[in-house]
Design a protein around this nucleic acid. Structure first.
Lengths: 207, 207
DNA sequence: GTAGAATATGAGCGATGACTCGCATTTGGT
DNA sequence: ACCAAATGCGAGTCATCGCTCATATTCTAC
């Protein structure tokens, strides 16, 4: 079975009006995901919410999956921007200061759009082109590993890869769980305590 | 809108033949989830795979969600059994020995049925009665916290709740990620190194 | 101003899936 | 042996969903 040769695999870039259409569709998808959940996010509903016809939707996206993927992408861009900036800032700072900052940033990153983040992690079946939702964690891990390498003299661990994996995984999980499931308990004081302790956890291990 | 008053909310226990039917249905659901994924797990398909008619399916389960919930429950029972046993075994042991054991057990627990665990965490939309998929982590957390309380003299932390949260979250995440995404790299040697280092991470922090 | 390309529209098709209901079969008690 | 309850059956209903296509509108360039 060959691909449908009739209608071109719809994609096309935009010439202006269409840009707005595409944006509206992505935005609508994100809105529905947050307010109604993944199950309610049908293509018809997305088009309707975006104020666009289904026909137009399919002119720019091959299907629902692509819409959701676009939303995920957008969110990841925002998150990774924060993470990259933080790691650049911290590149020349000593271990403890750096780790403290990174922990704080991890929490901040999860706070960018917690509701969307939650839907993305809890309701999106990681299938097809959505399998790689966690792939961006790999980039964060690589960046962190790189920092450790630059500061090898400050760290006392046998295996850098393993250490980076442990620390990055721990930090991500703590930030994730705290923001998504303990946001109510997360006052400013609690936030500070959490950062303090998570920093101790990681720094104590690294040296 | 009241509940449908006509047909009783189907549930009923069993009288023997039906027990087998129910088991077959749960087993079929698990099998399909693992081999085909959540999307393919339609009620019709489940019934067919179980060698049972759809009518019978709906006699014991109000819907697809309930089937999946049953599978999740079964899996959680197995996992929690392992965790509970380990924590009992470890109750009177000193910190380092205890933590080492718990780390190893966390990994083992994730290895009980990795494929199912993966589908459960990645493909099941946490919605409706499936929202609480992570709820059992709370029990594990409580058990661990309890251990720490019994060994308060061995631990040097200001806030026990916070410490338990950090350690339990970190251990779970490390075990989860290692088993699900690094299983290929997880030779016996790597396993030992992982346990060593994770233990150092946690113990170093706690005292 | 006009042609043709780009963009937008939405009724409707085909597929699938959750679920019902009337009826058949089995079981256990007597 | 018999019957009422329990269990099992599966064709068929209804709703929804993803997606197409023939047509209409708008834009751009000349």
């Amino acid at each position: 079975m060959a691909r449908s040769p009739l209608t071109e695999p719809r994609k096309h870039a935009a010439q202006k009006r269409s840009r707005a259409t595409v944006d509206a569709l992505i935005e609508a998808t994100a809105r529905i995901l947050v307010t109604e959940g993944f199950e309610k996010a049908s293509t018809n509903r997305i088009a309707e919410t975006a104020g666009v016809s289904i026909g137009s939707l399919y002119q720019y996206f091959p299907g629902k999956e692509a819409l959701v993927a676009a939303v995920i992408d957008r969110h990841h861009q925002e998150v990774m921007q924060v993470v990259r900036t933080a790691l650049a800032e911290v590149a020349s700072q000593p271990l403890e200061k750096a780790v403290r900052k990174l922990v704080a940033v991890a929490i901040e990153a999860h706070r960018i759009d917690p509701k969307l983040h939650r839907v993305l992690t809890e309701q999106i079946p990681r299938t097809g082109r959505l399998e790689n939702v966690e792939a961006f964690n790999r980039e964060a891990l690589a960046l962190f590993r790189n920092y450790l390498e630059q500061h090898r003299d400050e760290v006392r661990v046998a295996d850098l890869d393993l250490a980076a994996f442990l620390c990055a995984t721990a930090i991500e999980a703590v930030a994730h769980t705290a923001v998504l499931y303990r946001s109510d308990e997360l006052t400013d004081a609690a936030f500070a305590a959490l950062v303090d302790e998570a920093t101790r956890l990681v720094v104590g291990y690294l040296k």
